[in-house]
């Protein structure tokens, strides 16, 4: 049952993180690749504060607040830079933050990471954690559902279609984009905390590219503004690498195989589904 609960937990964790990415990448068309930084920042902030004796609730608030601040910084960059530059810059931020985590070993533990992540006392079993993650995932899914049905959701879809048209209708496309980036950062931060509650160990490899690739894959796969499709895509992508368990690969290459798997899948997806990502308008 432990394996079963773990897979359900992974599904809920990916669903939580993907809620933000679905809004930013799939709906609004903003290729925001800096969410692994928010994920890692909140995880490390919570762990460092929790192990330093700060109350769990305060550590959670501090972790989420730090990622919110990061999201605001990213949104300021988004307002300033062109879309291509923003994409590259957010990707560079993933690398830079990874370097920071590895270098600042007096605080982060460096490449060795931090073990024994504190968690709330009521999370004594994996099942209770799974239930909590399920509740959080449902809350975020409902939030996204109501956002999509609201004028904000229509603005996000219009943002992907044509930002100039959106501006001409009186909506500030940059503000809309900034809001969704901040939300995506916040959601990733929540995901970071629940993931380390399950794994109980934290190192620089937890976020970064290994998190970026599957989330991007889900976002490309669940291109339409449908919660159902996002959930199905998340389930599919979460369980897909489990196929590797049936092959006797050495443990030293399993991580690289997963990355290889996801990146090949992403290439195939992008080439097959790219036309669905572009705007609905007809190109004259």
């Amino acid at each position: 049952m432990g394996y079963f609960y773990t897979q359900i937990a992974r599904f809920f964790e990916n669903l939580i993180i993907e809620t933000g990415q679905h809004l930013s990448i799939s709906i609004a068309g903003i290729l925001f690749l800096g969410f692994p930084v928010s994920f890692s920042l909140s995880a490390y902030t919570f762990t460092i504060l929790g192990k330093g004796g700060v109350a769990i609730s305060l550590a959670i608030i501090a972790a989420l607040f730090s990622s919110l601040v990061l999201g605001v910084l990213f949104s300021l960059l988004y307002r300033r830079l062109s879309s291509d530059t923003f994409v590259v810059f957010t990707l560079a931020s993933v690398l830079a933050f990874d370097a920071l985590l590895r270098s600042w070993d007096s605080v982060t533990g460096g490449v060795l990471g931090i073990a024994g992540v504190p968690k709330p006392a009521f999370l004594s079993s994996l099942l209770t954690l799974v239930v909590l993650e399920g509740v959080i995932a449902i809350v975020f899914l409902l939030s996204e559902y109501f956002v999509l049905k609201s004028p904000l959701g229509r603005m996000l879809q219009a943002h992907k279609e044509d930002t100039t048209l959106l501006d001409s209708l009186g909506c500030n496309s940059r503000t809309v984009g900034s809001l969704v980036i901040i939300f995506a950062s916040f959601v990733s931060a929540v995901g970071g905390i629940v993931v380390i509650w399950r794994i109980q160990f934290l190192d620089p490899t937890l976020g970064g590219i290994p998190l970026l690739l599957p989330m991007l894959t889900i976002s490309i796969l669940a291109m339409r503004p449908r919660i159902r499709w996002m959930a199905i895509a998340t389930l599919f992508v979460t369980l897909l690498p489990e196929i590797l368990r049936f092959f006797p690969f050495p443990s030293t290459i399993i991580g690289h195989l997963r990355l290889l798997f996801y990146s090949c899948f992403l290439i195939v997806l992008v080439r097959r589904l790219s036309s669905g990502y572009t705007s609905e308008k007809r190109s004259i």
Binding site: L31, L213, L260, S263, C264, I267
Partner: peptide, 9 residues
């Protein structure tokens, strides 16, 4: 995105 994925491959 494709070039990024190819780099990871």
């Amino acid at each position: 995105l494709t070039s990024f994925s190819f780099a990871i491959v």
